[in-house]
């Protein structure tokens, strides 16, 4: 049996029989009743919207801070202090254990 031909025939059969567009009686009233029953204010949707609205300003602030830290002229003293602080914090546990042992 020619499957491609059968497939074509079946597509044509489906095309020749479009589904009905009948609407059950008073269907729109059922939907309007549902809408009236539901709270008009959807708190989750509002939260979602707020988060999306907040996303753009957050990205802008992040980019500004990133640019500022990248391009700001670091002073030698602040670099030393930061490096010294980092080193002291990292080696602190080892220093303490040496003293205990």
């Amino acid at each position: 049996m020619n499957m491609a031909e059968l497939q074509k025939k079946l597509f044509a059969a489906a095309r020749s029989n479009p589904p009905s567009d009948d609407v059950p009686y008073a269907f729109e009233e059922r939907i309007l009743a549902q809408l009236a029953a539901k709270p008009a204010f959807d708190i989750l949707a509002a939260w979602n919207r707020t988060l999306w609205q907040a996303a753009a300003p957050c990205v802008a602030v992040m980019l500004l801070l990133g640019a500022w830290t990248r391009f700001a002229q670091p002073t030698d003293s602040s670099r030393e202090t930061l490096a010294g602080d980092l080193e002291r914090s990292l080696y602190l546990p080892f220093d303490n254990s040496t003293e205990t042992w």
């Binding site: 049996m1 020619n2 031909e5 059968l6 025939k9 079946l10 059969a13 489906a14 095309r15 020749s16």
Partner: peptide, 27 residues
């Protein structure tokens, strides 16, 4: 309907209820 199609593909009617049910089953 399939027998008819196998024997003579060009003659098998596209408007037959059997063909419409068959395509519904396959889909």
């Amino acid at each position: 309907w399939l027998d008819h199609f196998a024997a003579n593909p060009a003659d098998a009617s596209e408007n037959a209820a059997a063909a419409r049910e068959l395509v519904e089953k396959v889909l």
